[in-house]
């Protein structure tokens, strides 16, 4: 009996995970991207007006190569073991940031508060 309840709980967790994943993937794009390290904003980029460019962001002995092209942003290359940030590809969902754990780097669409701060 207890087992049945636990199986139902596990199934519910799994279903919630799938629903959550779909919601996250469908979160809309925005125009302003921010590049952060340890919750401090390093760069703010208006993707609508930004020129295409490729630049490096250094962290200790390591670095990430960020590319901006056609109003999109991605990590082109990284000096880290897993390259998760590179595999994430272009930033396309406001809920899925590009994250490089080894280099403490996060690239995401700016949240409301951050856009207000820029305007002010």
């Amino acid at each position: 009996m207890k087992i049945k309840i636990l199986i139902i709980i596990a199934a519910a967790i799994f279903a919630l995970g799938i629903v959550g994943s779909i919601l996250v993937l469908n979160a809309p794009e925005k125009d302003t991207a921010v590049i952060k390290r340890d919750n401090k904003i390093l760069y703010t980029i208006d993707l609508k007006t930004a020129e295409d460019k490729v630049f490096d962001i250094k962290y200790k002995d390591s670095k990430n190569t960020v590319e901006i092209k056609d109003g999109k942003i991605r990590v082109k290359d990284a000096e880290c073991p897993d390259k998760v940030c590179v595999k994430t590809g272009w930033l396309s969902s406001s809920a899925v940031p590009i994250v490089c754990l080894p280099n403490h780097l996060v690239i995401e669409f700016a949240s409301e508060g951050e856009i207000d701060a820029l305007a002010g």
């Binding site: 995970g17 799938i18 959550g20 979160a27 940031p97 994250v99 754990l101």
Partner: peptide, 23 residues
């Protein structure tokens, strides 16, 4: 650990995917 270390709750967006993969 990631939320604490990176200091950003944004990474929570990964959680649903991790739940599915974990199951």
């Amino acid at each position: 650990a990631a939320v604490i270390l990176l200091g950003t709750p944004a990474i929570l967006a990964y959680y649903p995917f991790l739940i599915v993969s974990g199951c």
